[in-house]
């Protein structure tokens, strides 16, 4: 096996708060190979954005400590000098922020903002950078790209802005694109278009994509690999096909239950996981999911082991036979 493009090992992120340090992300490991789409899923607050932002050094260094190792093309990122990190950002690793409505600086035109990124990494005239910006806008499917480049963020619809943000992210042909819920703020038709666009980027530019989402439907459509996060930890990870056919963790069962079926009669209500995830800093001892788990056992108050095969693991106490009996019943009750 070749070396992965991005390799995150035992990443942890903690904040200094008034009541002492709290750990928001703990022991997160994931790797992304060249050209692969890896999906990071989990409910709101599970630490998805935080993990990947800290990989790029985009967290607030004044109150955040990041531990573990992150390797990109064999280079360790966490102790990279700021200057080198800056050259990497936008050029080798691009980040698409969670909310397209606020991700662009309101006082500059779209074209200027894209050109600014290009010129941060390449020696190129302002005019050529603008021309490239227009071309990029055309590539992401914006009609009248030259016109759009002259417009300001507030003059564009949400879908257009998201496309502009994507155009900006891919402007330097990054090897890795981190897209933080690129479709959450959009309606379903635009959502599908944006996902198509991301897939096209992979085929056209060969970029690997880390796709953060909480929508298992998006995962099913896009991902080669899935990483399920809960309360700041990876509770299950593996190839998408395996996770979908043979989910190991009860939390993943719950997430899968929340996809509307494509065929057959629609259920009256989509099952959802009862309860809410724990707050950062108030994660219970042992398995963090235990309080909400339909297959909870006595041992769940102790630290769960990592089980499964090398490619597909989960953080759970259930044995294979326990899982086989527990899963059908939870599906019925749902």
């Amino acid at each position: 096996m070749t070396e992965p493009l991005l390799d995150i090992r035992n990443l942890s992120v903690s904040f200094a708060t008034e009541s002492g340090p709290v750990t928001a992300v703990q022991d997160v490991s994931l790797s992304v190979a060249q050209g692969e789409i890896v999906s990071v899923v989990g409910e709101s607050g599970s630490g998805k954005s935080l993990s990947l932002l800290s990989v790029l050094g985009l967290h607030d260094p004044r109150n955040t400590t990041v531990g573990g190792t992150v390797t990109f093309r064999g280079q360790s990122l966490l102790d990279l000098p700021p200057k080198q990190m800056r050259h990497l950002r936008g050029r080798d690793i691009a980040f698409i922020s969670q909310d397209p409505m606020t991700a662009l600086t309101p006082v500059y035109s779209i074209g200027d903002q894209i050109a600014e990124q290009i010129r941060a990494h390449e020696r190129i005239t302002a005019w050529a950078a603008q021309a490239r910006a227009v071309q990029l806008l055309a590539d992401v499917g914006i009609f009248a790209p030259a016109d759009t480049a002259k417009r300001y963020p507030h003059q564009l619809s949400g879908g257009m802005r998201q496309r502009a943000v994507i155009a900006m992210a891919v402007s330097c042909n990054p090897a890795l694109l981190i897209a933080d819920e690129p479709t959450t703020a959009l309606d379903t038709t635009v959502q599908a278009q944006v996902l198509d666009l991301l897939r096209k980027l992979r085929t056209d530019y060969g970029s690997a994509i880390v796709l953060i989402t909480h929508d298992m439907g998006v995962v099913a459509e896009m991902a080669d690999k899935v990483v399920v996060m809960y309360a700041g930890r990876v509770v299950e990870s593996g190839p998408a096909a395996e996770v979908f056919t043979n989910p190991l963790h009860p939390y993943t069962w719950g997430l899968l239950g929340s996809i509307p079926p494509l065929t057959g009669t629609r259920p009256r209500r989509l099952p959802s996981i009862p309860g809410a995830p724990p707050m950062v800093g108030r994660v219970p001892a042992g398995c963090a999911f235990a309080p909400r788990c339909p297959a909870r056992l006595g041992v769940c108050s102790t630290e769960p082991p990592r089980i499964g095969t090398p490619g597909h693991t989960a953080l759970c106490h259930l044995t294979d036979s326990q899982r086989a009996t527990a899963r059908p019943t939870t599906l019925e009750s749902a």
Binding site: R89, S97, T102, A103, T105, V107, E116, A120, V165
Partner: peptide, 26 residues
């Protein structure tokens, strides 16, 4: 604390440019 500052940083701009062209300007 605005999102667009994070975008500006993610673009690989220098800290000074982020401060003057994005945070100060807005």
């Amino acid at each position: 604390s605005e999102d667009f500052i994070r975008t500006a940083r993610a673009k690989g701009l220098s800290e000074r440019r982020v401060l003057i062209r994005h945070a100060f300007r807005t």
